[in-house]
Design a protein around this nucleic acid. Structure first.
Length: 344
DNA sequence: AAATCCGACAACCGCATCGGA
DNA sequence: TTCCGATGCGGTTGTCGGATT
């Protein structure tokens, strides 16, 4: 970018003033920051704090604009900046919040501690929009959003489940049971990190996607089962249900008790499952995902029934226990937080 | 080995908004 | 109320390094 607007901003300034401004502009450094500049900026902020960026730029000895200093600090130097790849959880939050708010990057970033709006924006442009381009659809189209919800999100949820299971985990259930996976040739064609990553079993693009003739979702050869966006919470995350959510089979009570105990919530009354399972959104779940993951790990360590209850996935084969765990944990966390349904 | 392509991300720009004088 | 500087936000571009030809 070679545009300079310093002179134009000078408006009716006289020749002398213009010359001074141009000289000043010419002195300003642009482009990548050096280590020395970073150190200078950090030491100045350590002494004087953030803010007043133009003053900072003038007084610190940096030949940068205040804007540039601010950006460098906020996007790179600030101590709480989180580096490295976005986690599956973070990607899910981005997908969910972008569907909700659109390109409100800073607002989305507020829900991802340590991540900057710039980083999220870049992620969207380089990863998400790329997928949309490959599918020949608009990234903001309903078709693409359906594809995200039906394929990408479940895949990320699957990754999360594996991460939660981490150390003591059994092999991924999709591998165990051989369900919900593409053939090796399909996988090779699509790629593991593509949007069209294999759909978890039980997920299907919504009718709007599959009947619109779009290549986005239809090309993915989904299974003939309910779509993510059509399912309620129970279906989405406990599908297919092998047990009895309202506790009739006994597994609910057992698992809930163990679960609540692991959360330090002994005695908390979850109430009937019907009262909390519907209406929850993915984001609601994610808000409490760490709590859920802890509980799931505890259950596993204690010989409980690990389950792949979310992402509709592979069916759990052992009946009563598994399908209640995540839902109950969500509900417990929700009660604990006391802010269900608000303020996201 | 060199040239080219491409993805990732840092950085810049214009504009909008805010807040104090 | 108006002006103006500071700050924030979102779009866009530049740069670099790895992959591919």
């Amino acid at each position: 970018m070679s545009r300079r607007k310093g002179a134009a901003a000078g408006g009716g300034a006289g020749p002398m003033a213009m010359a001074a401004m141009e000289e000043e502009a010419a002195e300003l450094r642009r482009g990548p920051w050096t280590l020395e500049e970073d150190n200078l900026l950090m030491s100045y902020i350590a002494c004087h704090g953030e803010g007043r960026w133009n003053l900072l730029a003038r007084c610190s000895g940096l030949k940068r604009t205040g804007k540039s200093c601010r950006l460098r600090w906020l996007n790179y130097l600030k101590p709480d900046i989180k580096r490295g790849n976005l986690t599956a959880e973070e990607q899910l939050v981005i997908l969910e919040l972008h569907a909700k708010w659109g390109n409100r990057w800073s607002r989305i970033a507020q829900h991802l501690p340590g991540r900057t709006d710039n980083e999220i924006k870049n992620y969207w442009r380089t990863r998400v929009q790329k997928q949309a381009r490959q599918l020949k659809v608009d990234a903001n189209s309903a078709v693409f959003r359906d594809a995200v919800r039906c394929y990408w999100m479940p895949r990320l949820l699957d990754k999360m489940s594996m991460a939660a299971a981490s150390t003591a985990a059994p092999p991924p259930l999709m591998e165990q049971h051989g369900q919900g996976v593409l053939s090796s040739s399909q996988s090779a064609a699509i790629g593991s990190d593509q949007l069209c990553c294999y759909p978890a079993a039980g997920f299907n693009p919504s009718p709007s996607a599959s009947t619109s003739g779009s290549t986005a979702a239809a090309a993915l050869q989904p299974a003939p089962v309910p779509c993510f966006s059509e399912l309620n919470w129970e279906d989405q995350y406990c599908y297919p249900s092998g047990g009895d959510l309202d506790g009739g089979a006994g597994g609910m009570e057992l698992d809930s008790a163990a679960l609540l105990g692991s959360l330090g919530l002994d005695g908390l009354d979850l109430g009937p499952a019907e009262s909390y399972l519907p209406d929850a959104t993915l984001l609601d779940y994610l808000n409490y995902s760490s709590c859920t993951a802890n509980a799931m790990n505890m259950m596993m360590v204690n010989g409980g029934n690990y389950n792949n209850s979310y992402c509709g996935g592979d069916a759990m084969v052992d009946g009563d226990h598994h399908d209640t765990t995540t839902a109950a944990t969500c509900h417990a966390a929700r009660k604990l937080a006391g802010e269900w349904g608000g303020g996201i």
